[in-house]
Design a protein around this nucleic acid. Structure first.
Length: 481
DNA sequence: CGCGTTTGACCTGCGC
DNA sequence: GCGCAGGTCAAACGCG
């Protein structure tokens, strides 16, 4: 009996174990099935995504086609206008152009990527011819630097001067002498007849400063030039020392810069440039040099008007529906406006300063905040550079890029470049590449809701690329996947 | 050893 | 004229 009981017990235990095994196997099968279901889900979702992306791609292609079509029609209109203009010009400017050609041979041309946005092949050839003349006559390298100074003045000043839209048309007319155009070299040339005024002018240029505010983790911004530090000082009201640098590309180059962190936000680096380079620049340095020259010229031009007041001017870039507005404001009390009252960067009235603020997320509102307040002796002027081919526009953008990408440090300070190619639309700002051969593109996104005036995208993550097409549209679009 | 940076002294301009 | 602050000089120092 006992054996029988034991046998039955063993049998029960055996059956239970068998049952457990079966349950385990079933569970494993369930897991497998679930995994397969999950895989199928993933596959389906991936397929759905691919379909979405394809649809998005199609939409973008349609948009692209529409934009190209629009551009072509505009381009055709423009060419027609251009032909009419040239027909007009050819009648009465043959004598003037001869004179201008003689002048041009003496110009130091400061151009930042101007060469690219040719409205047509004729202009391109004309420009190339100019540059070749310059380079051959001076025996310099191919680097041509052009510095034009012109303003479209809104508000009160625009009423005094004939309105000139900053469109491609302005580009074409760049050789025409107008009241608004004040190329520094030409100014200087006319000043030769009047020695005193020339001295005054040079003094003004010498004192004009360009202050660039940008977020920068490194000790200095990499602007492509070679600098030697010659001093450091703790300025009043700012715990951060101010460093003084001299340009060492040429032994007698008068350009200096001051570098200091902003007391209120240590991540913001304030670099103040003074003077103009008297030597050929490395390509990577033309961006900032052009900015400083342009800004200095702006000050000079402004100071030549009766309304101008000494002080600090602020150049802001703002995004609008039509493009980008550059806002130029002036005030006699720069410290209270743009820097803490005990500002670290000197802006005495003997040093009129253009502040290029690349830190504010929306510089237009930034500017409005200041300009809206009633203030004695302060004026603001809006400079509309809707054309991306405007040299000052490019200069400022290039400076923005220089600031944003500056991987300065001691190496950069010694003139080693950042390794980036900058391109604006059809204009290139090649910066020699060292460590990193990647490129970035400025992206002019026609969206009024965009917070940043300018968006910068790495080449490999371009939503829109402004790479040049044969027609030179600033809105060429790449497939976005 | 050469070159760049640091740092205290000195110069200069401006406001009171 | 004096004091203050910005700017520059130049000897000392450090690094490669």
């Amino acid at each position: 009996m006992e054996n029988m009981k034991e046998m039955s017990l063993f049998r029960k235990i055996f059956e239970q174990e068998e049952t457990k095994k079966l349950i385990g196997e079933e569970e494993e099968e369930d897991v497998h099935v679930q995994a397969e279901f999950q895989k199928e889900d993933q596959l389906n979702s991936t397929k759905a995504k691919v379909v979405e992306i394809r649809e998005e791609n199609e939409r973008l292609k349609l948009v692209l086609a529409r934009m190209v079509k629009d551009y072509e029609s505009l381009h055709t209109d423009f060419l027609n206008i251009l032909q009419q203009e040239e027909a007009k010009k050819s009648k009465d400017t043959s004598a003037i152009t001869h004179q201008e050609n003689e002048e041009e041979s003496e110009l130091v041309s400061l151009s930042l990527g101007r060469s690219a946005n040719y409205s047509n092949e004729a202009n391109k050839k004309k420009y190339e011819k100019k540059n070749s003349n310059l380079s051959t006559s001076h025996g310099k390298e191919g680097l041509a630097l052009r510095l034009d100074c012109r303003f479209e003045l809104n508000s009160t000043e625009s009423e005094k001067t004939p309105s000139s839209e900053n469109t491609f048309e302005e580009e074409v007319k760049e050789d025409e002498p107008t009241d608004q155009i004040c190329p520094p070299s030409k100014i200087l040339k006319t000043m030769k007849s009047d020695q005193d005024e020339e001295v005054l002018q040079q003094a003004q240029l010498k004192k004009a400063r360009v202050s660039v505010r940008a977020r920068c983790a490194t000790p200095t911004m990499n602007d492509g030039c070679q600098w030697r530090k010659y001093g450091q000082k703790i300025a009043k009201g700012n715990p951060c020392p101010r460093a003084y640098y001299r340009c060492t590309v040429s032994s007698n180059c008068p350009v200096k810069k001051q570098v200091q962190r902003w007391a209120e936000d240590m991540s913001i680096l304030i670099t103040t440039y003074e003077g103009s380079h008297n030597h050929p620049l490395p390509i990577s340095a033309t961006a900032m040099a052009s900015t400083t020259s342009a800004a200095a010229s702006m000050l000079q031009c402004r100071s030549s008007t009766s309304e101008s007041v000494p002080g600090t001017s602020v150049l802001s870039a703002a995004n609008t529906a039509n493009g980008l507005n550059f806002t130029f404001s002036e005030t006699t009390r720069p410290h209270q406006l743009y820097f803490p009252i005990n500002s670290s960067i000197s802006n005495s009235n003997s040093h009129p300063t253009v502040v290029l603020d690349l830190t504010a997320p929306n510089t237009s509102s930034y500017f409005n905040r200041f300009s809206s307040a009633p203030r004695n002796n302060s004026s603001s002027t809006c400079l509309n550079f809707s054309s991306p081919s405007n040299p000052k526009f490019q200069s400022a953008l290039a400076a923005a890029i220089s600031s944003c990408i500056g991987n300065g440090g001691s190496k950069a300070q010694q003139g080693e470049s950042s390794g980036l190619d900058m391109k604006w639309g059809n204009s290139n700002f090649p910066i020699k590449t060292a460590a990193d051969s990647s490129s970035i593109f400025l992206n002019k996104v026609p969206s009024p809701t965009l917070q940043q005036p300018v968006s910068i995208f790495p080449l490999n993550s371009l939503p829109f690329s402004t790479q040049k097409s044969a027609l030179g549209s600033p809105y060429d679009v790449k497939d976005h996947v």
